[in-house]
Design a protein around this nucleic acid. Sequence first.
DNA 1: CTGAAAGCGCTTACAG
DNA 2: CTGAAAGCGCTTACAG
Lengths: 330, 330
Amino acid sequence: MKNITISDVADALGVSKTTVSRAISGKGRISNQTRERVLAYIEEHDYKPNVIAKSLAQSKTYNIGVIMPAEYDIIDLPFFQSCLFGIQEIAASKDYDILLIISPPGDTRQLERILANRKVDGIILMRTFVKDSQVKMLSQKNVPFITIGSTYVESAIQVDQDHKSACFELTSILLKKGLKKIALIGGNENFVVTQNRLAGFREAFSQLKLPVREDLIYLNTEHSSQLDETVEDILTKNTDAVICMDDALCTQVLKTFRKKNVSVPGDMKIASFYNSTVLENYIPSITSLSFDEKKLGRAACKNLMEIIEGNTPQKITVLGYQVIPGESTE
Amino acid sequence: MKNITISDVADALGVSKTTVSRAISGKGRISNQTRERVLAYIEEHDYKPNVIAKSLAQSKTYNIGVIMPAEYDIIDLPFFQSCLFGIQEIAASKDYDILLIISPPGDTRQLERILANRKVDGIILMRTFVKDSQVKMLSQKNVPFITIGSTYVESAIQVDQDHKSACFELTSILLKKGLKKIALIGGNENFVVTQNRLAGFREAFSQLKLPVREDLIYLNTEHSSQLDETVEDILTKNTDAVICMDDALCTQVLKTFRKKNVSVPGDMKIASFYNSTVLENYIPSITSLSFDEKKLGRAACKNLMEIIEGNTPQKITVLGYQVIPGESTE
DNA sequence: CTGAAAGCGCTTACAG
DNA sequence: CTGAAAGCGCTTACAG
């Protein structure tokens, strides 16, 4: 049950392997007639070139490595999932496959192994950190790569959602309703995305020449125990509204509000960052933002393909967002 | 900046490529002295064999394909994620990598492309269906593969959690408390896992010689609108307790109960299938089951490696579970 | 427009 | 214990 090879095809047709190769790849001069004869034969006999052999000859793998952080944060999963779908869509259309690299943040071992083994033609990083050892390494080694999410490394080509503008707009909406004491609850400050959202938050205030209440900015609030204290603090300070940087945080905050009989939007307005399934059925409906993550994945993969093909895509691609107004801020 | 090859090593050491190859692989006779000399040189000069060339020579790819269904069901994501972690752990330890295949249920195109391109040495299916075209195809083509979750295809080697026993025990616990009218709410009946849980549910009744209330079995309840009707129906029928086949369903049911002022566990007992993050902070705490999904991934990958190496692992590997008692059934 | 030949970087019978 | 040589299945200068 051996697989049919390019030699078999060549022999059967009485042409050279070179000719068969050219018919398939479309490279090099070849007569229309010959090409069609070869293609017809291939089609009929279901010949599939051996990608490994092709890889070796061309020093290409037709794989892209996608790095997924080895962190459990259930709320981020749909994000990664959607990105992956977008990536895979584009990749498959160019006959590329996805090599999944699961790696703890800051740990470059997996990545190095795969690069040393020459198993991929390029890399997509699905999350970036303020100080990102993976980005640094890829950049040094001159490996084609794209980051989803911004990075501070100059040479990196990035695709991102416009978190800053989004947070700016969300904050502005609240400010323009006359709400002044707005709290911001966010996750890990080492994520670039956290910094970007914070920047948007600040800008909304400064544009309206209002002072930011620094004591109402709560970052690194990841554990729910910690979050309870945060909410406590927010309530003590007579806050008007809360913006949550993600829906997991928002869910927790809402739960605590309910426990303490804080009514939304009566006593407190609240807005969150994603209109995810976690909150979609919540009553009252929560004002939130909508991003197209599949599109993000597609954009990242398209750009990576460009780099691999030797082109230079634009350095920063920023994708839009939408504000989904809800009852929670009325 | 060319990469150092096996020939370079051989030349530098004044030995043949054969010898270098043998020193690395450990196959074939070679003197200890020579092996160590080669290994030392390799270590010092950081030589990494080209995996692609190795692949071509051995007809092996050192990749395993992992199939993830292209379906959005947020509740399943942590499951897949954990499995992936387990898989990757074992794979990496054997220098294998994961090729991610995202594929709509029933669609074998992605899979066929990857097989035709000979990009993997074996496949892990992360979800199975009652009628599973992917399983059928893999089985026909004689590709090494493992299913996570049971399948009805005879030849398939499977790794699964013991959903049946788990559901049996959960149901038994409720029955032994004297609860008779127990409703079962489940998802897609085309998933083997749904059928297994249902079987466990039934067995609990039959073992205690109690009749199953067929009208309290609700499958295929995926959309929340539909679920509302289901809950309505359950309440009409004066039900004692509800078992939910997953936490997404459970969350919805709990929400509806609250809306209708049905108190848990006062008016109604409830139990769910996973002790996932979705419910972990719920008040009252929810009686549920705990499975180790990373372990599942590990077991699947281990078995696949066995098959690839020419061994025959046991046909069905079943992993245990734990009942986590909560206040919701007290 | 077509082909013979070398090359990609390994492995592995075979011979010694 | 070691090595020369063929082979894995492609691609691609080079020559015609």
